[in-house]
Computed example of a mutant assay.
Amino acid sequence: MKKTHIIILIFIAIAIAVLISFMGDLTTYDTVASAQEKEGKYVHLIAKLDKTSPVEYDAVKNPNYLRFTAIDTLGNKTTVVYHNSKPTDFEKSERLVLKGSMKNGQFECKEVLMKCPSKYKDDVNANKKNLSAN
Score class of each variant (00 low, 15 high):
L49Y: 00
T28S: 09
I6W: 07
L49C: 05
K48F: 11
V80N: 00
Q36C: 02
F90L: 10
I6T: 09
R95I: 10
T27M: 09
K86C: 12
S53R: 14
K86W: 08
K77T: 09
I6G: 02
G100V: 11
N76W: 02
T28A: 08
K38P: 01
L98S: 00
V55Q: 06
V81P: 00
L96P: 02
K77I: 06
F90K: 15
I7P: 00
L74T: 03
P63Y: 03
K51E: 12
S85R: 13
S93E: 10
A13S: 15
L96Y: 00
A17T: 02
E37G: 11
Q36W: 07
H5F: 11
D58A: 07
V60D: 12
A35V: 04
V81M: 02
I16D: 02
T28F: 07
I14Y: 06
Y82N: 07
E94M: 09
I12Q: 01
A59S: 12
I7S: 11
L26W: 08
E91W: 07
A59M: 06
V18N: 03
F22S: 06
L9F: 07
I46E: 02
I16W: 01
L96I: 08
V97T: 08
L49G: 00
V55L: 15
M23N: 12
V43M: 04
F11D: 07
R67L: 08
F68L: 06
K92Q: 13
K61M: 09
V97H: 04
I46Q: 04
Y82V: 05
K86P: 02
I71G: 00
